[in-house]
Design a protein around this nucleic acid. Structure first.
Lengths: 152, 152
DNA sequence: TAAGGTAATGCAACGAAGTTGCGAAATTTG
DNA sequence: CAAATTTCGCAACTTCGTTGCATTACCTTA
């Protein structure tokens, strides 16, 4: 069910787009899910739970945010970005994520200046030569540096 | 001050080795630091804060473990391994870590079966081709799969 | 489109994780 | 060995994340 790409590339209204994404992932359409999904759609880059709580205002209970993010993860709408601190970040799955089977095999970039985390879909995940006896099933790559915007 | 390698490769007693490492990193030698450093020296692989607390037994206060790990990080004795969950892991810096300037540019491997996280010093960090405008200062690579021991 | 079943939300309470200040104890220095 | 400095442990606190349950919202179908 590689639905996101096609949805992302249409010019349907944000409102419709949000409902379509939710329904395609078999989630009922509720205020909190609309709101949180909208935050991700209008904000380029990965967001932490705390970011969401702040951006959503006082409108939703903490618990609802937790459960919404969890539901989005399980249904393949979001994936997590690995970090070296305890600050887990979530980002939209942009390509063919099946339920339970994420294919978020792309590079993540964390800017040292603005702190933003973005998914670099153009950069290929390189091959890693492991010592004898090791088998690889997934490779996560996080690049730290200066992003396009901060470079200016 | 690339001290660790030379220290790690000597056959001096563990006791002496621990004191040498601590002193080289300008840390006073205390029971908790000895104990915690010893845990890392005798245990291959990365350990979380919780692992340390459990392995150290009831001997130390939670706060002491936090502060010790923090001190080891600041002085370049330990580095963190990025993960997609909130479970930060710490591992010994095996090569030339200056204070504040970690050069932990090696691949980390997380085994899906035993759960152990190890530093793969033999595997080269591959080059990542970034889009125009991005500058890279550090690349973190975490490989998930089956390790040498679990393969058998 | 209204009714009823199902699912999501909000609240409260709880446990775990992490932080801070400060007096007591240990380590280092001279 | 004594003074100066650092570290430790305790207590209190904040933040983070989870669970159970009653209320509310959503979706279905008749």
């Amino acid at each position: 069910m590689p639905v996101n790409d096609s949805i992302h590339n249409t010019n349907m209204s944000t409102h419709t787009k949000i409902e379509t994404i939710l329904k395609h992932h078999r989630l009922s359409v509720t205020d909190s899910r609309r709101k949180i999904l909208n935050i991700f759609l209008t904000h380029a880059g990965a967001l932490s739970h705390g970011d969401i709580e702040r951006k959503a205002g006082e409108k939703f209970d903490r618990v609802t945010v937790y459960r919404t993010l969890q539901a989005f993860m399980e249904r393949g709408i979001l994936h997590t970005v690995p970090t070296s601190d305890a600050n887990i970040k979530y980002a939209l799955c942009s390509d063919s994520c099946h339920e339970g089977h994420h294919h978020d095999d792309h590079v993540h970039f964390m800017c040292r200046l603005c702190g933003n985390t973005t998914c670099i879909n153009d950069a290929l995940i390189p091959d890693v030569k492991l010592p004898k006896g090791y088998t690889s099933s997934q490779v996560e790559v996080v690049v730290h540096g200066i992003c396009k915007n901060c470079r200016k």
